[in-house]
Design a protein around this nucleic acid. Structure first.
Lengths: 112, 112
DNA sequence: TTTCGTTATATTTGCTTAAACATAACGAAA
DNA sequence: TTTCGTTATGTTTAAGCAAATATAACGAAA
């Protein structure tokens, strides 16, 4: 059995993490469920952890990534902004390309 | 100020980490000092942590990465095998190329 | 104005991981 | 056989981080 190359990429803004794999998962879950609490449940993480992640994302980003509404019909909710959607698309594209790149680099250690 | 892309890569062997940035630093320090204890001191980590890392490396690798001698003149020491040296070279090469690759991908988020 | 599900936040508890400390084994050389 | 600096390993303590618990604020609709 041969060696494998693994990687993690993330986007930073002024030394703070903006987007990583976990944060992208959370944003996608918000997009699908329309609320942060439901997104947290679908990812099996606590609401607090989800909120902290989302708060960090919105504080690190140059423009809001989600619009959160509190109170009212249904209690409120959260939805992605167009900016948030474009960030996710960019991250997924870069991540996919990175894995393809590393798959080529794997040749360098195939014979080790 | 714009966003930055960061990454971490590592080599795995049967679901165990073989080589990452920290382990490569340790191996290079061993190469320079000739002993695990001196390498640990130079990296400001405890001897035990260094030993556990090195032990994990040698157990994950297909062939020994270091030869450790105990007792005798000078108390003993540790030195890299040719195989260990080639692993380090491969890791550094892949890592360097990955950063260059991501530097190109940075264009995708320059305007976000 | 009461209800409801959500966002928002603080506090406490538990767990995993890292650090600190301690000690045995080794073997060449004096 | 005593010394020395190293490898090798166990044990205990501390710290950081995740999880659990609790509660306030909100605002549309009934």
């Amino acid at each position: 059995m041969s060696y494998k190359i693994k990687s993690r990429i993330w986007i930073e803004s002024k030394n703070n993490v903006l987007l990583g794999e976990g944060r992208v998962h959370l944003l996608k879950a918000i997009q699908e469920t329309g609320s942060l609490s439901k997104a947290a449940k679908s990812l099996n993480i606590s609401y607090k952890k989800a909120w902290q992640l989302l708060d960090s994302v919105n504080k690190s980003a140059k423009k809001p990534v989600t619009i959160n509404t509190v109170g009212g019909k249904g209690g409120g909710g959260a939805e992605l902004t167009d900016y948030g959607k474009s960030l996710i698309l960019a991250f997924d594209e870069i991540n996919k390309n990175c894995w393809a790149f590393l798959d080529k680099e794997l040749e360098r250690i195939k014979r080790l």
